[in-house]
Design a protein around this nucleic acid. Structure first.
Lengths: 238, 238
DNA sequence: ACCTGAACACCGTTCAAGT
DNA sequence: ACCTGAACACCGTTCAAGT
């Protein structure tokens, strides 16, 4: 006798129940969160949104993570895993420079990471592994003890600070294009008035107007990086 | 004949109506916002909370600011005004170093600023004035054109990056104290397992355990700062 | 064990209506 | 002009109840 009970009928008509009936796990949740963050930034992220993307209810997520803060910590460590370094590179300046460039590239791919970095401690497995490889490169370069910490911090700080400035520069430009010509005129007026009180700033802004943002960002990044490496070279034992 | 109408009775019994009957202005709103942010951080801030502190309804704030984003931009520029520099200091290294130290102190007084810095462009009057004085110091030191921009960026980036790292270090320590001994044991277990895979990190963490965070933060800040200034000195014209 | 659905206590923002 | 009060469309989080 036919019925609408899904447990009735031939076995072949009933799909095999997935192992332990799980539709979720941390990996899937974190991946969904990173996807939303990359596409729409911090403002687009909500527990309800992630749940919807996974075809599930918001409450379900709390079975796997303690809350939104936990989830962001996991997402942060996840993308930290994208940073690459070559522990065999013999030239220590090149090795550390490439590590810094790889960090920069990751931070630019995931622009939501930086505010997160500023707001929560960061002790996931990928963060620790990254720290270890950085320390390894510096140790091979000859640094030890307190100077090892300070040199590592100096390089990390440069990357973080530089990318913050770069992102906020790019955002300002993007906002200027989006808001159209009306805003541009208004801004021009504002800048003209400001320029009278800030001649140096005005001159530099005029000079930077035509410049390609990508090229100029790279140039500034490398400038400070080489300054730092020079300073480190002068302090390097032996 | 007595009545409860407040407009009745002697003039002396009616308080003088305040000028234009204003209870609010941007200055008061921004000050209230900064107070909440300093005391309770970004999570404690809400339009309703600010309004309540000012004895007013949330909707009223929208007469003076376009929204929460505007308000945060104003608050950010407000505290940027606290940074000090001495444009007469003859030693250019000392002048730039002191500026960096003043920026660091401000960022540590207002720990909510850094994530804000990472998330919105920053073109308020105090931000521009600060940029102008920085450029002035570097120009007096002999830098010009593209190197002027790069040198300014290098110093700013260092301050921002260093304070981000310092705050997240301090937060991690504070959290460890707050969550009590149970968490400490758990963390110790975790770290023991981690240490096997990360010997360099383990050694440095052990060495840093006893150290005063304030002293060590200053030491690292100065280390990178002097590295940078060395690099700048080598690139300085004349 | 794992997920739903409803509820709770919040948000930012808008806007008619009052004065 | 300036502020209220209510409403709208959201939040994160909790938790009994289902399977």
């Amino acid at each position: 006798m036919p019925t609408s009970d899904p447990s009735a009928g031939s076995v072949w008509l009933r799909p095999e129940r997935p192992p332990r009936d799980r539709r979720l796990d941390r990996g899937r949740i974190v991946a969904a969160a990173v996807a939303v963050l990359d596409a729409e930034g911090h403002r687009g992220l909500s527990m309800r949104r992630i749940a919807a993307d996974l075809g599930v209810t918001a409450g379900s997520l709390y079975w796997y993570v303690n809350g939104k803060d936990d989830l962001l910590e996991l997402a942060l460590d996840h993308v930290l895993g994208e940073v690459r370094a070559d522990p065999e590179e013999p030239d220590w300046r090149r090795a550390l420079g490439d590590l810094a460039r790889s960090q920069r590239a990751m931070l630019l791919r995931h622009r939501w990471v930086l505010p997160e970095l500023a707001v929560r401690p960061n002790l996931g497995p990928n963060a620790l592994a990254l720290a270890e490889t950085g320390l390894g490169l510096l140790a091979r370069a000859g640094f030890a003890d307190a100077d090892l910490d300070a040199a590592m911090a100096a390089l990390n700080d440069h990357v973080v600070g530089a990318v913050i400035a770069e992102i906020s520069w790019r955002d300002a430009l993007a906002r200027m294009r989006d808001t159209g010509t009306g805003w541009a005129e208004q801004a021009a007026d504002h800048l003209r008035r400001v320029s009278e009180r800030h001649p140096l700033l005005a001159r530099r802004m005029a000079a930077t107007r035509e410049i390609d943002v990508e090229r100029e960002s790279v140039r500034r990044f490398e400038f400070a990086l080489q300054c730092l490496l020079d300073g480190l070279a002068a302090r390097r034992p032996r």
